[in-house]
Design a protein around this nucleic acid. Structure first.
Length: 236
DNA sequence: CCAGACGTTGTT
DNA sequence: GTCTGG
DNA sequence: CCAGACGTTGTT
DNA sequence: GTCTGG
């Protein structure tokens, strides 16, 4: 699956790779991150009238009909096998697909007492592109909804699609994010493309991955920094 | 009809 | 065990 | 995803 | 919002 990831590439590099423009508000707010956990902001690439645009949205999808945003940490992933039929995901899949640029993502192995983190990154250079869907949520509260700046109360969130693990991931875990090769980026974020077709094409793709064991300091979602990727201290 | 859910993943 | 927060 | 909390009451 | 269960 995919519950934690990193995007520490320079923002300008992210824009260049995805041939996208940063939303100015998003760019001002974004900082490279090595430990992006559910409920935390992440950069995402979406299709706009003007082309590909990078926004900052929160990890963990809150459906538009949710009474409050507190369930955000629960819908962090959507199964590619069933995403088209789930009430919580269906409309997002049809009309609101986006790409999550990643320097890499984490998976854990081992028993609950001693979880071991691993970092997966592109085998070659570059960035990973995870397939995702997003939603816009507004407070039900009518006073907030009628304020002139109601748009500022809107919360944009996303969930990452998953599929059965292949290649490098299978040894560690049984699920992994759906990763898109560059040739599939445009179709994924194009709302004119049927969602189910887009998923069917996306899950066939394989991105060559490198993997390494990293510091268990990453387990704590409050920690941050490049040193989270250091090899763990030797244990006998 | 109304009420209540709506999601994924983990581990021995 | 199960939920919440990061 | 993992880590950490998980409860009520009264009083200042 | 939209579907399922009673």
């Amino acid at each position: 699956m995919c519950g934690r990831f990193a995007l520490f590439h320079d923002p300008a590099e992210v824009a260049r790779v995805f041939r996208a423009m940063w939303d100015p508000v998003a760019l001002a707010r974004w900082r490279p991150a090595w430990n992006i956990a559910p409920t935390r902001p992440a950069a995402v690439v979406g299709a706009d009238a003007d082309g590909a645009v990078i926004h900052v949205r929160r990890f963990g999808l809150v459906p538009s009909w949710a009474k409050d945003a507190s369930g955000a940490a629960r819908m962090i992933n959507a199964r590619s096998e069933t995403v088209h039929e789930k009430p919580a995901f269906r409309s997002a899949l049809a009309r609101r697909r986006c790409i999550v640029p990643m320097s890499g993502f984490y998976e854990w192995s081992g028993p609950a007492r001693a979880r071991v983190p691993w970092f997966f990154s592109p085998a070659d250079t570059g960035l990973l592109a995870a397939a995702a869907i997003w939603e816009r949520w507004r407070p039900r509260d009518s006073a907030a909804a009628t304020r002139p700046d109601a748009a500022e109360d809107a919360l944009e969130t996303f969930a990452i699609l998953t599929k059965p693990a292949g290649d490098a991931v299978a040894a560690i875990h049984d699920r992994m994010p759906v990763l898109l090769p560059e040739s599939a980026w445009r179709r994924w974020i194009d709302p004119a493309v049927d969602g189910r077709d887009a998923v069917a094409a996306a899950v066939l793709e394989m991105s060559p991955l490198a993997v390494r064991r990293v510091s268990p300091r990453v387990n704590d979602a409050r920690r941050e920094g490049a040193d989270l990727l250091e090899a763990p201290a030797e244990s006998p």
